[in-house]
Design a protein around this nucleic acid. Structure first.
Length: 104
DNA sequence: GTAATGACCAGGC
DNA sequence: AGCCTGGCCATTA
């Protein structure tokens, strides 16, 4: 049981708001969800998501503009495939945040 | 109760 | 550009 169940829900809700063709960082998601210094918690929450979730977790990347997964992992490939499918282009595994970062 | 863990981040070198 | 360090804080053991 969470001490603050609404916080997890807020984070998921915020991630769900990221529009197609845009991305957001863990830190920004935390900020928009009203949890300013809880970037790591965002990752913890996304990790718990089931396989067929509707939450667009692939639109969440780290502050360096890169996937937070190792390049040889399936998660990395899936994330990049989905982003590319949404016209989000990554050069050398790096995404241009100036261009693709979602700003509500 | 303490200690370790982690889909993070900013700063320093 | 890369690598290391300290800080962060909810979860887990």
């Amino acid at each position: 049981m969470d001490q603050d169940p609404t916080l997890k829900e807020k984070i998921l809700q915020t991630v769900a708001l990221i529009p197609k063709g845009k991305v957001c960082t863990y830190g920004k998601v935390a900020e928009y969800a009203g949890a300013e210094r809880r970037a790591r918690f965002v990752g913890t929450v996304l990790k718990q998501l089931p396989a067929g979730t509707k939450i667009p977790w692939h639109r969440v990347i780290n502050s360096q503009g890169k996937s937070s997964f190792p390049e040889d992992s399936d998660h990395y490939q899936e994330q990049m495939n989905r982003l590319q499918q949404e016209e989000v282009v990554a050069m050398k595994g790096k995404i241009n945040l100036q261009r693709y970062l979602w700003m509500p």
